[in-house]
Design a protein around this nucleic acid. Sequence first.
DNA 1: GTATTATCTAAGTCT
DNA 2: TAGATAATAC
Length: 807
Amino acid sequence: MNYLDQLNEVQREAVVQTEGPVMIIAGAGSGKTRVLTYRIAHLMEKGVDPFSILALTFTNKAAREMKERIAKVVGGNEARNLWMGTFHSVFARILRMEAEKLNYPSNFTIYDTDDSKSLIRDILKEQNLDDKVYKPSVVLNRISSAKNNLFNWREYQNSTELVSDDNSTGKPKMGMIFEMYSKRCFKAGAMDFDDILYNTWKLFNDFPDVLYKYQLKYRYLMVDEFQDTNFAQYIIVKKLCAQHQNICVVGDDAQSIYAFRGANIQNILNFEKDFDDLKTFKLEQNYRSTKNIVRAANSVITYNKNQLKKEVWTENHHGEKIKVIKALSDNEEGNQVALNIFEVKMNNRLRNKDFAILYRTNAQSRSMEEALRRQNIPYRVYGGVSFYNRKEVKDLLAYFRMAINPLDEEAMKRIINYPARGIGKTTIDRIVVHAAQENVSTWQVIENIHEFKAGINTGIRDKINEFATMVKSWNVMLKNHTAYELASHIASTSGLLTELYNDRTPEGVSHYENVQELLNGIREFSENGKIPLEAPSAEQELPALRTLDFYMQDIALLTDAENEKDGDDDKVSLMTIHSAKGLEFKNVYVVGMEENLFPSQLSVNSRTDLEEERRLFYVALTRAEDKLTLSMAATRYRWGNLIYCQPSRFMEEIDPDCLDLPEEKHAGSFLDDDDDRGGWNNYQQQRNTNTRPGAPRSFGNKPTGSRFGGGQSKSATTPAKPVTNGGGVPQGFRKVNVAVPVQAAADFEAADPSQIVVGLNVEHQRFGKGQVIAIEGRSPENKATILFETQGQKQLLLKFAKLKIIS
DNA sequence: GTATTATCTAAGTCT
DNA sequence: TAGATAATAC
């Protein structure tokens, strides 16, 4: 197969430019993956040893797919020797090999975010600090970005800038918390996500011989999704390629959506400065989407100030306009989307997997799922509460973690008294405090509890000792038993399996089944060497005996999106826009196009955040190949409250020629008695009054009463009332606690308002059946007071209420 | 120390 | 709404 023939000119140039620093700016859908894979294949065809190629991708799935494609060009045997994976998985592996240099055990645990937060909470408690002031998530963020910028706790404390920052925000103890956090992690033989990067840098920095070794080994480096790398990652890459300079990065500044995690678009700009003889290639031809979609996406992204010059274009056909769905509620939005999927699928003879529903937040999946279930459309939700995040699964994994690394403090706290062993909270606190006082690990205290005493009475000390003996016995079994043998042994001897089995409630049964599923996965690994979400490089390093520690190595780094044990893959995909990065679908539905949801409420006060939201929207739009649908709801349940929504400002940023807007009709007010606070009847008005030309709207940096700075407040056209008070709490809205899904909105035949009289039994689409107990005011402004069977008493404006008379 | 109940609180994107 | 924590009774 002559792969070079399948490339356009720029793509081909980028592929054959194998030596020296290369940067590829790849617009959405411009064949970036194709270039990367062919570039690697080309290297191999030229005789480069696959063992000396390292490709860093954003997800393991991307790595796996790329590998498969390379295998088609150069053959599977050669391709399997390539090392491809995420930064975290590749460097975690290197760290395990070099662990003793940093005084870590090679079987170190990887703490996930929950572990980190729980540790921070502990520290706060011990230090008597208020967790309202030092919110664990905020503290962790601060520590995280410090490490991503290669500051350890000591450097943090020495930085006058950071310290005065903390002082001015009223958190002077931040540096101290950072110190304690780092020390505790170290003592527990644990690294968090950021430590994996920080420690890799430290390893390369403090041990030049180690760095030299890897520089020699990986003579060709490739980095995908470069726009989403952070400073630490960038410096590591720079170090690795310092000798041979064979570095190729691929990215698109317009698709940078992980700044919140420390990703830095500046890396793209720095790259030009850091490498003198850099060759840059711009891929601007889009092969994925229709002209209409490309045009819409381009029109949106022009609103961002910060971007590299680039013109994405396509030779594809025009395609349909972007369909806009406006629904009255989140449930109805789901119904309309599901119905639309059904129709489009039937009319065009498509498959379920040609469809994707993308949303801003995971919580939005619920209404979509319900609607798809009603329509009998098979679907698969990516992300959300992933399998590995379920409590019972985490519990069993914590047992495994402790068997492998008994120092693991967070795992210990999780399981030492689950199932109940008479080792309560007070006792655990004493152990932890004592360990801190004696400057040893909690495990040392537990292991030698009779010597340490730690103020714990003999009876409980015996129980702790029993626990320690059990953990040690597992630890001994680690190297001479298969993963499955040990895992099932632990599951039963710990008492966890019995505990779960004894709970015969439906939830209890499902907990038990989940644990069984985990064990089944481990069995498969033991027998076939199949790693659950197979890290691409794993097969070449499988040990003779597939042990539990090997199985556990990457579990913490796996994402649910990569978990594809499901054989039947003809399903509609549901996922956040973030996890849709790099994917494409024939038909894409972007749902929840509402202010304060997308863009997120938390982003609208800062230009940088808002621009990131806009790039996210850009990513969403460019996932679609043929057909794009945007939907929004006039009301939505959030945090258990009904709130009224305005269309997203992004709707106005799309070139109107690309849109296919629905006809306007009265809506919205049927939810409440007076005032029109929501609904879409203002929508057209707003569009018309809005300044359209290419000039970006100005947004004030500080919220100044109006939700938007500058003079173009939306409330100019909707003087009624602001939807929220800025903090997200709906103002002056009565709570409606139970949402009855709108089932078949289309064929609900409402009676004429004049027919509604006191005493009638009526039915309402949303509130169900009820009796009219009063009517006041005169038509057409008359209101009916209706006592609903399930929803209680409500006042409805008759002209909007749509009531069916039952008797 | 444990089990049950009541109360509170947080709710964004991910390795 | 749901998960975590606090209060309560045993």
